[in-house]
């Protein structure tokens, strides 16, 4: 128990706080703990979670990515054009196109970072601007509504109608999200590649001397992020049934904040899937709760920002240190 507490301090704290919020919301907002609300909460968080686990891999490997949200938009746009040109395609082609386009964009970042030894924040801010600018230039900012039917079709992986006739549904994106989360967990926790990613993020020079292939590690981290961005792009279109070039612009920093809130270390070597999911859900539940409590939607962001500020101001305080000091004094 002591070990679990020690190695997952941030995760444990976040889980406790999240549980308290959930209990408080169940009491104050009767709608909160209902199946329809929780399923819509999951539907809304799916895309963010897919991005978040991808970003987690990059953060663990000691990098940072600003470009993933616009990369998703680029993938959406290109995939829509490509798929229409091959006559519409299907889900298999959709995943194949979006996944490989995403990986390509990720590998582009990795190549610039590793090939020229430029740090990731500089590269991804540059590619962020390049991706977005080119996308807006070539698309002219116009939305694409004319999409293949399979893509915009509503697919539910879970349906339930309660006594009042209210439907609770989980759509495909939740299922895809679960697969992405599990796949990422397997990658970083259960394979030797994942351990090398942690090692590389933790001590790049040490990893290099141990024989870890640095170029491949950068490729895996940013390639995985790209894959997740591609899949997130695909699923986002499935939810909103259109491609809007600037719809995802600006989402990257919110996802980053949530992932770091979940204990991933800026600088590498540390971060867990559990913490990452908790971080994203913490923000989502808070927003959902405020909504149910009838707080003005304009206040959501303010409260979430304040909560994150308080969270980071307290999370760096090591409670055990304070206890020890007290012991020493007495």
């Amino acid at each position: 128990m002591r070990n679990i507490l020690r190695s997952y301090t941030i995760e444990t704290r976040l889980a406790v706080v999240l549980a308290l919020i959930c209990i408080a919301l169940s009491v104050t907002a009767p709608q909160f703990a209902t199946l329809p609300n929780l399923s819509s909460l999951m539907n809304q968080s799916a895309v963010n979670l897919i991005w978040a686990v991808g970003l987690l891999v990059v953060l663990i490997a000691g990098g940072i990515d600003i470009s993933f949200a616009v990369a998703s938009s680029v993938v959406q746009y290109l995939a829509a054009k490509l798929l229409m040109s091959v006559g519409g395609g299907n889900w298999v082609l959709g995943f194949l196109f979006c996944g490989s386009l995403g990986i390509l964009l990720g590998l582009l970042n990795a190549w610039l970072i590793h090939g020229f030894r430029i740090i990731s924040i500089v590269v991804t801010i540059a590619t962020f601007n390049a991706f977005f600018g080119l996308l807006m230039f070539f698309s002219g900012g116009r939305n694409i509504y004319n999409l293949p039917d399979w893509w915009t079709a509503r697919i539910f992986i879970f349906e339930h109608q309660n006594d009042q006739g209210v439907w609770s549904e989980l759509n495909l994106s939740v299922g895809v999200m679960v697969v992405c989360v599990i796949a990422t967990w397997v990658l970083i926790r259960r394979t030797n590649i994942g351990r090398q990613l942690y090692a590389f993020g933790d001590n790049p020079e040490g990893a290099r001397r141990a024989g870890v292939n640095i170029a491949v590690m950068q490729g895996v981290a940013f390639g995985w992020m790209g894959l997740m961005a591609g899949i997130a792009g695909l699923m986002q279109v499935n939810i909103f049934q259109e491609v809007v070039p600037n719809a995802l612009y600006g989402r990257e920093l919110d996802v980053l904040a949530a992932v770091v809130l979940g204990g991933a270390r800026l600088g590498g070597g540390k971060g867990t899937i559990l913490g990452c999911v908790l971080g994203v859900m913490f923000v989502a539940v808070t927003q959902n709760g405020l909504n149910l409590l009838g707080v003005s939607p304009f206040a959501f962001q303010m409260i979430i920002g304040a909560v994150i500020l308080v969270a980071i101001s307290t999370s760096n305080m090591d409670l055990s240190q304070i206890m020890r000091r007290k012991e020493a004094r007495s």
Partner: peptide
């Protein structure tokens, strides 16, 4: 590797290499 556990550090060299295998 400062953020890894003692056991993970001691056994790290087994992890090196690109042939995927489970931990």
């Amino acid at each position: 590797f400062p953020h890894m556990t003692v056991a993970e550090n001691i056994a790290f060299d087994d992890m090196v290499g690109l042939r995927p295998r489970s931990v």
